[in-house]
Amino acid sequence: MAITREDVLHVAALARLEIPEGEVEGVREQLGAILEAVGKVSELDLADVEPTSHPLDLVNQWAEDEPRPSLPREEALANAPDPADGSFRVPAVGG
């Protein structure tokens, strides 16, 4: 299952990473090598094995519906690269 240039570009687009044109091939080669190594997991026949998504078998860890103070707005916006009008400003979507 060799990874193609198109695969790399598709995955990069999904992950919102802008790979400069000149680096695409290098990225493809590295990913290909890693994928070949990790593809080892498919050697095992695990059709009847349940997946583990959590090391501990816990359920029902939740909190009561009781409000706690929010951040003052200045703190919420303190790290914002481009605050405006009490909000987080971003360029137009798909503009």
């Binding site: 909190a63 519906d65 409000p67 929010s70 951040l71 707005r73 916006l77 009008d85 009490g86 909000s87």
Partner: peptide
């Protein structure tokens, strides 16, 4: 219409000033 949000305990209210019901979790 719970009192708080789904995954943090900021108030779940409508019509407040922007970004006055936030915390590190919901940001």
């Amino acid at each position: 219409k719970t009192r708080t949000k789904m995954f943090c305990r900021c108030e779940n209210v409508w019509g407040e000033e922007p970004n006055t019901r936030t915390c590190p979790v919901c940001l």
